[in-house]
Design a protein around this nucleic acid. Structure first.
Length: 311
RNA sequence: GGUGGGUUAUCCAAGUGGCUAAAGGAUGUUGACUGUAAAUCAAUCGGGCUCCGCCCUUCGAUGGUUCGAAUCCAUCACCCACCA
């Protein structure tokens, strides 16, 4: 294969509201880089205010990828993301520019460090059939079925998590092979970016400081017309897409539009869920991503310090 | 001023004499994670310990009845409703 040094990828992450956007822009400007977003919701057109998507002015400062590439009613997932990101990365490098991956979607981020989904073709209609059965008979029935198909055991499957059980059964039925076998095979899979040298930095802030920033940001979002944005997206089919409709800021606003949440409680509800998200992100970064440098955003002032010296 | 209703742990809210540190929910905390991932799921959630058990402090306040009270009685405080 090619003998030269592996191409380098810089990845900047951090939980929601730490201030990734501005630092990413600065670093990209100083290092002749383009930004590949790593965010499961910025991919959707029209989800702007509630996702704190970079503004038009910010997007104009540096070329961005993987933002506004799907309709809210359209389904997006890690597999799609990974393929699109890989091709964006190749294009950027072919242009002899650097790549800065920026974003806080943990699962998507993991794609840069290893395999994140297998390539088992989904059989048309199978998933729906399993989900219908889940609805009728409950998870237990699916677990029984799975156990029947897997005399060697279910491995590390979380049998109480309906979503996982459905996927596991889907994989078994689609391939006719046992879970443990599929799992060990999966472990062997190289990630989509295995040929790259990936450097990861996490931007962090004290929880108290972060909470204050979140609160301010939510106020700004509401003033900027979050409710109107959500109402507009609702008409465009937002609810048909569970992942977009469940986005923080959006789900609470939908509840509000449905009369289930008074306007006076909207900001507080969004804040609580945002904090919960940040906590989950921290856990993910710590436990699911490789050891990496963590930088306190309050304590440095130079984008060059984000990563090791760029050669 | 009168009558009735209420005051339970971070919040909401069950519980009307022992099986109650006290149901349930939310929040919080910790964690899991192969294609919905800002999702889904789990554990924990008064305090302390030598932590499959033990000790301490809780159910507005004080005092009482009882072998035993968040649960019964009295007084006080605050809140709500209706009547003056």
């Amino acid at each position: 294969m090619n003998a030269g040094p592996r191409p380098k990828l810089h990845v900047l992450t951090g939980c929601t509201g730490v201030g990734k956007t501005e630092w990413a822009l600065r670093w990209a400007e100083e290092n002749d880089a383009e930004i590949v977003s790593c965010d499961s919701l910025l991919v959707y057109r029209g989800m702007d205010i509630g996702t704190a998507k970079p503004t038009a002015a910010e997007l104009a400062r540096v070329p961005h990828h993987l933002i506004d590439v799907a309709d809210v009613s359209e389904r997006y997932d890690v597999t799609r993301y990974t393929a699109a990101a890989l091709s964006a990365v190749r294009d950027i490098l072919a242009r002899r520019r650097r790549v800065l991956v920026a974003g806080g979607s943990g699962f998507y981020l993991k794609a840069y460090f290893g395999a994140v989904a297998d390539e088992i073709e989904s059989v048309p209609g199978l998933r729906e059939k399993i989900e219908a059965r889940l609805e009728r008979e409950g998870v237990e029935a699916l677990v029984v079925e799975l156990s029947r198909l897997n005399p060697a055991g279910l491995g590390a499957l979380d049998t109480r998590n309906p979503r996982r059980v459905v996927r596991a059964l889907e994989r078994c039925l689609a391939t006719g092979r046992p879970l443990v076998e599929l799992a060990s095979e999966f472990k062997m899979r190289p990630g989509a970016f295995h040929g790259y040298d990936v450097e990861l930095t996490e931007l962090a802030r004290e929880p108290v400081v972060l909470a204050k920033r979140m609160e301010q940001r939510i106020g700004v979002m509401l003033a900027a017309g979050l409710v109107e944005e959500v109402a507009r997206l609702d008409r465009a089919g937002l609810r048909a897409n569970p992942s977009a409709a469940c986005a923080i800021g959006y789900r609470e606003t939908l509840d509000h539009l449905d009369g289930k949440l008074p306007a006076s409680e909207l900001a507080a509800a969004i804040l609580a869920n945002t904090r919960a998200l940040a906590r989950k992100q921290r856990t993910w970064f710590r436990t699911q991503l490789p050891a990496h440098r963590v930088i306190d955003a309050e304590k440095f002032a130079n984008a060059a310090e984000l990563f090791g010296p760029v050669s």
